[in-house]
Amino acid sequence: MIVTWSYKDRDTIIQRLDPRARLIFMFCAIIAIIQVWDFRILVAWLGVALGAFFLARLTWQETRRFWMVVLPIITMLVTITALTGRGGEEAYKVTHPIWSTVLFGRFTFTISAEQLAFAASQFVRMVTMATFGLLVPFTIHPAQYGVTFRGLGMSDKFAVATDLAFRLVPTVAKDFQVTLDAQRARGYELERKGGGLFQQIRNLAPLIVPVTIGTILSGEDIIDAMDLRAFGAKPKRTWVIELKYEPRDYVLIAAGIIVLVVTTVANVLGYGNLWVPGWLLPG
């Protein structure tokens, strides 16, 4: 069965805003953020994202699973980028090495002030975007997904399909947990050691196959169920849930557009590039 994200209905300033306005603002914010490498501006954006997180009265407890998955991935990506020095070519041209060593007697490994500043900016940027992204499933009422996507210009069919696809993530996660339990009850251990890479991948088959097949079959069931209820019968469908913009929603949309325009202009004029604090530079 298709499940929903862990959503709690709360009467907060965030949830009172129209979901379309929130998605438009978020879209503008993310486009603005990816144009900026200046740590100070990114920290300000993080403040906005965290402000929204707290205004929505979300807690660590209810979002813990999300962060447990996302934070290690971000940390890994940032660390790899920082250690290899790759990824920052566009953000900085000149480097100021602050530490270096020779590995295995052959390879010189160097850390520069720019690499560290880039890593810090990249980390803040990714956490900010993740926080904005997290606000979508945790603060938008699942009953409003379809009509929200429709209101953003998608066709009826595409809006319904996006609604279902959006709820597919927690559904697959739930199916994965049930499958893991069922196979553990048959003596299967995910942490089984031994074997080469190919064997390790084969060891995942008892989890991957039922979840994949189950997802495909339940997808077919959903298509049947939708067909049996006249999905796509008319060129235009009705949406029983209605959304209505309030003045505050227009303010939010305007704020998003202004920030995006200002950031884009600043970016074109050469502002917002990587900022390396003076105290980090050698000498």
């Binding site: 209820r229 006249a230 999905f231 019968a233 029983v240 849930i241």
Partner: peptide
Amino acid sequence: AYVLNDVAFGLENL
């Protein structure tokens, strides 16, 4: 996702 949405689904499509 909710009972109202679900029961209304067929009529919305029509």
